[in-house]
């Protein structure tokens, strides 16, 4: 249970950073914290008490001892997607810094938000 609560707290910390921070880089960091929180949540859904990794590496390992592999596969995909979004976000931050010579979001807002 504590796993769920902690990962939700991580998500909330990330959202807080996105909402409150003024620095563009910190906002991007906030987005990745949110991603990590969601990934932790997904992983903890697949957890099994005293379970082991879902790899049949020894003959004595049976399926009954293993954790749910599906959330792990989903998280693998979600991590890569998060990486893609972060990369594009950082590229945009570089662009914005080029044009405005500042990282402060309040000084950049020209379009209505």
């Amino acid at each position: 249970m504590i796993f769920y609560v902690t990962s939700i707290l991580v998500i909330l910390i990330g959202i807080y950073a996105v909402l409150v921070k003024k620095n563009l880089i910190k906002i991007v960091i906030g987005l990745s914290i949110v991603d990590s929180g969601v990934n932790l949540l997904l992983i903890s859904i697949g957890y099994v008490k005293h379970g082991t990794a879902p790899i049949f590496s020894r003959p004595d390992l049976t399926a009954a001892q293993m954790v749910d592999p599906v959330p792990q596969a989903l998280v693998l995909t979600a991590i890569v997607i998060g990486l893609g979004v972060t990369a594009v976000a950082l590229a945009l931050v570089i662009r914005l810094y080029d044009h405005h010579k500042t990282m402060d979001i309040n000084k950049i807002r020209k379009l209505k938000w």
Partner: peptide, 14 residues
């Protein structure tokens, strides 16, 4: 929380 996998997860493991 912490239960044995069910549904598709169980199927994949088997």
């Amino acid at each position: 929380f912490g239960n044995k996998p069910k549904g598709v997860g169980e199927y994949y493991l088997d």
